[in-house]
Design a protein around this nucleic acid. Structure first.
Length: 614
DNA sequence: GAACAACGCACC
DNA sequence: AAACGGTGCGTTGTTC
């Protein structure tokens, strides 16, 4: 139903008693922190979809929306009354985006927020995609119902009529497309928006039923994580909204630096090969033949031109190719993207997918991918991507991170007492493992530790250590002989996964496991346990920090980043205390190492921040 | 021209 | 019998 100037107020009254609603906004673009605005929104209840249009501009054919259906933008304020209802739960697919968009209109949801995307990932993380269409298609299949057939007509129109602007970023070949949904004809937009609203409502109620069903089967881990995710949605939204200051001058200088590096590499390639560089197997095949270089092989048996292979060929062209790739990647994925995404206020507002790693409920971060920003490798190199991010005036960065979070949690879960005793006695985890294994180097122990967390076998160990598979096998035996509880714990988890089809991690929440994927189960348990512990810490910390000037701004799996105001530095130890307290250990607690910097994310040093260091 | 596979590489 | 987990993002090249 399309809301008109005449029935607007009446409809709002009708919404008042509703306990569950879905909301979906239609916007001029994705940068809610900059100039993009909502032009319409749809609210759905159990029977009806209400389409509120605020767009008064013509569509791509020049047609105007019917004047009776153009609502004044000021009327958006009227929605706040219902949004303030704490007894209402809102189903929203990718909720934080809509929260951002409506926040730009001065609106805030004080009720419960059920992000149907995050919940879909939580309930079954085994799928490859979680768009609204994907989730809805699976829901109908599961219910043995026929869903709507045409769900992406709007998308098709946008593509066919080229209702987008192409933006070219330096270092990128492919243009970014900024889609202009506000150019879609009014009737079509209203129809499909209402359908999305309906589908989101159906998905939300379906998810609640699935949840109920799981709980009734005794799987209360899902209840626990569902409740936590609802809190985390709000916490992450605050982080996204806060953003991180970008040093725009430094970012521009870095871009120029790598621009010249890339050109330089292109020239060097041409000097050696006599052709222009094309970074692909096809592009290198002929050149490598001419230079009589034999490349290695990829996993699928094709010629490989990966960095480690290029290093082995011992020909200067290897360095040229890796230099070219490095410069190009840094420009396109980071520097150019930052400058494209930076807000008017000079901040980067990333998007946090709270269950992005859906199999383990880890978070992932996109636009930009701040969890993959390279770390500093050479302290003498003035160019470091993390230096692009700086604390605001009178603030410093505080970056506490868990020490060997995953391995410690595994040892504790396995109750591997002899190693735990050594660690509690002051040894680092890898040295302790090496000692316990007897006759093993710290390096070998460290490699085994990682492989155990990832489910890797002797062939991988052999590869990593440059030894034979036989030797790797014997190292494994040595490990399991001397750390037999780890072996026992792994077998228990795998058997459980095989029998039940899911695992329960140390924090009590659940991941479904594909049949034949049981070897991944110990990894899911630990990665998932760590992810949940971190989320629990984040929820508590965000709660405790309400009203403070200092803000939590980023999470990188086992590390948090805070912008701390100079007057609140003494709060840092409390953050660490919360982080250390969330996991209820049996023998080995999680510990946290503090880091700080007054300069940039790329300049953090160990310890707590002080004013003297400013 | 879009979708997909394959590759490569950054992080934890 | 045998398997290194989880991501995001970029390019090239093929296919429909």
């Amino acid at each position: 139903m399309i809301i008109s100037l005449d029935n607007f107020k009446e409809i709002l009254k009708e919404l008042n008693p509703k306990k569950f609603l879905s909301i979906d906004t239609e916007t001029t673009g994705l940068k809610w922190f900059n100039n993009d605005r909502l032009f319409s929104l749809v609210i759905s209840d159990e029977t009806e979809d209400y389409y509120f249009n605020f767009n008064k501009d013509p569509d791509y054919e020049g047609n105007l929306p019917p004047s009776n259906f153009i609502l004044p933008r000021e009327w958006l304020k009227e929605l706040q009354l219902k949004l303030s209802d704490k007894n209402c739960t809102w189903f929203i697919h990718n909720a934080k985006f809509d929260m951002g968009i409506i926040s730009r209109e001065g609106l805030i949801i004080l009720g419960e927020i059920h992000c149907t995307e995050a919940v879909a990932r939580l309930l079954d993380g085994r799928h490859p995609a979680y768009t609204l269409d994907d989730c809805v298609r699976r829901m109908f299949r599961h219910l043995r119902q026929k869903g709507p057939s045409k769900i992406d007509e709007v998308k098709k129109l946008v593509s066919k009529k080229k209702l987008y602007k192409e933006v070219h970023l330096e270092g990128k070949n492919q243009a970014k497309k900024e889609l202009h949904y506000h150019k879609v004809p009014f009737d079509m937009m209203a129809t499909y928006a209402c359908m999305d609203g309906r589908l989101c409502y159906l998905l939300g109620t379906y998810q609640l039923k699935v949840l109920e069903n799981r709980i009734s089967k005794g799987l209360d881990g899902f209840k626990q994580s569902y409740d936590q995710e609802k809190k985390i949605t709000k916490v992450c939204f605050e982080m996204e909204k806060e953003g991180i200051d970008l040093d725009i001058d430094y970012t521009n200088e870095s871009l120029s630096h790598y621009r010249s590096n890339m050109k330089d590499a292109e020239q060097r390639f041409y000097d050696i090969a006599g052709t222009h560089i094309v970074d692909s197997a096809k592009g290198y095949k002929e050149v490598f033949q001419r230079l009589s270089i034999v490349p290695g092989l990829t996993a699928k048996g094709n010629p490989s031109y990966a960095a480690d292979v290029l290093e082995k060929v011992k020909h200067p062209i290897g360095k040229v190719i890796t230099d070219y790739r490095e410069a190009r990647k840094l420009m396109s994925s980071y520097y150019s993207t930052f400058l494209y995404l930076v807000s008017k206020e000079g901040k980067i507002h990333c998007s946090i997918k709270q269950n992005g790693a859906s199999k383990t409920q880890r978070m992932s971060i996109v636009d930009p991918a701040l969890q993959t920003v390279p770390k500093e490798h050479d302290p003498n190199d003035p160019w470091n991507v993390r230096r692009c991010f700086v604390p605001p005036e009178d603030y410093c960065f505080f970056a506490p991170d868990y020490d060997q979070m995953e391995y410690r949690m595994m040892l504790d879960q396995a109750e591997e007492i002899p190693v735990i005793k050594k660690i509690l006695g002051g040894l680092d985890v890898h040295t302790a493992t090496a000692e316990q294994m007897k006759a093993s180097s710290r390096d070998a122990a460290k490699t085994i530790n990682f492989l155990l967390l990832y489910g890797g076998g002797p062939p991988r160990l052999a590869e990593a250590l440059g030894i034979s598979v036989k030797e790797a096998e014997s190292l494994y035996h040595q490990y399991f002989y001397n750390l037999s509880n780890v072996q026992r714990w792994r077998r228990k988890i795998m058997a459980f996964a095989q029998f039940k089809g899911y695992i329960k991690n140390p924090m009590g929440t659940i991941s479904l496991v594909h049949p034949k994927g049981e070897y991944k189960a110990p990894n899911y348990a630990i990665q998932g346990g760590c992810a949940q512990a971190m989320k629990k810490a984040m929820a508590k910390i965000a709660d405790n920090m309400k009203g403070m000037k200092s803000k939590m701004v980023l999470q990188i799996h086992d590390e948090l980043l805070f912008a701390m105001h100079r007057s609140e530095l003494d709060y840092c130890p409390e953050i660490v205390e919360v982080m250390e307290s969330v996991y209820k250990y049996k023998y080995l607690p999680l510990t946290v190492g503090p880091k700080f910097s007054w300069r940039s994310w790329g300049d953090t040093k160990e310890g707590y921040p002080t004013l003297e260091a400013a």
